[in-house]
């Protein structure tokens, strides 16, 4: 499909330089696909209201502290506003732990009830979870990282996932 095509043929002129977002260690941030690279939904661990804001800022430095205590995620829940983009509506719910820290984000409403059709149109909503949440749930099915040797595989998280 790319045979003999130059970069300019495939991606004419538009070189979208999306603003980078720095997610400091310990922050929990939800990013959704939106209709322009300058817009994004940000929920970070400093937010205790659970509200969803559509932000055009290019930098976010969540400064929320990370508690090492075992706290029940979902002790409080807060449903965000429905945010409408040109391809549909997104709504998320923030789950807070006992100390009011954001511990999980659930997507309540996708732009389309049929997630598969979204994905086919490249409109899938990859959800980024920071390690704080990953560690609490640890419900991943695969691990991506620098390539493991077959020997290293035997001691890897992927090996554990393949044998669970």
């Amino acid at each position: 499909m790319t045979r003999n095509k130059s970069a300019d043929d495939q991606f004419p002129l538009v070189r979208r330089l999306a603003p980078a977002v720095l997610l400091a260690s310990g922050g929990v941030v939800f990013l959704a696909l939106v209709d322009g690279p300058e817009n994004m939904i940000i929920l970070n661990s400093s937010s205790t209201t659970g509200s969803v804001s559509s932000s055009s800022s290019s930098t976010s430095n969540p400064t929320g502290s990370t508690s090492t205590q075992e706290l029940t995620c979902g002790a409080a829940r807060s449903t965000g506003a429905q945010v409408e983009f040109k391809w549909g509506i997104v709504q998320v719910e923030a789950l807070l732990d006992g100390e009011g820290e954001l511990c999980e984000v659930e997507v309540l409403q996708f732009p389309d009830a049929d997630r598969r059709s979204l994905a086919i149109n490249n409109f899938a909503l990859p959800i980024l979870r920071d390690a704080v949440v990953v560690a609490k749930n640890a419900n991943v099915q695969a691990v991506s990282g620098a390539t493991l040797t077959s020997r290293a595989y035997m001691a890897s998280l992927q090996f554990a996932l393949d044998n669970s």
Partner: peptide
Amino acid sequence: VGISNPHNSDELRFSL
């Protein structure tokens, strides 16, 4: 999908 912590492959840094 969990993404390895590049400094410690026994840990995940984030997931997608």
